[in-house]
Amino acid sequence: MATEAVELDVFSGAPAAPPARPRVLLVGTIFAAGAASAAIIGMIALYTQMRADTIAGGDTWLPQEAVVPLTPGNMGMVTLLMSAVTAAWAVYALRNDDRSHALFALGLTELLGVAFIVNTAYLWQGMGLGIADSAQAELIYTITGAHVAMTGAGMLFLLVMGFQALGGQLTGRAAEGLHAATLFWFVTIAVYAVVWYTIYITK
């Protein structure tokens, strides 16, 4: 059935569409992720240097009463790695306009993020280190706390972009916002890998 073209004068005075702003969010996220990483990596550099200085002076780095358990740290790493897969899945699903799977994958990513934060809080409780006990404790809590803050920011970013995507604003090829949030999430995981190796593995 042929349709007749109708001129809608109601649109004739409408403003022009805003100019396309390609990659703005993605580029901004790359810089933001770099800055956030620099802050944490800078603190880790302080940590490793102070540890090296202390060990070179003939002392042990961690106080006798301190216990930095390996299992929760490993669990944190595994949890975040799983969340990397689900985040990538969300992007893939959204690019194919598969909204139900995108919703499921985003929900899983957020859930794994919450699990990671709970896991870190459990680790803090089990360490037997008060923040005011030693310089080492201050460093460990500052570094891991900063990373938890970065994780929270990543989850919020994913949540906002996820809602926009599922609301129909960022679907298919225009899913740049979710790409950006996922990129930030991947950087968060990469930074945790450094934290995990420095603080939990080599101690």
Binding site: F31, G34, A35, A38, A39, G42, L46, E138, L139, T142
Partner: peptide, 14 residues
């Protein structure tokens, strides 16, 4: 600046 100022911010937070 974006790679340097956060390093200083981290140090000041500590």
């Amino acid at each position: 600046w974006l790679l340097m100022l956060p390093v200083l911010a981290g140090m000041l937070a500590l």
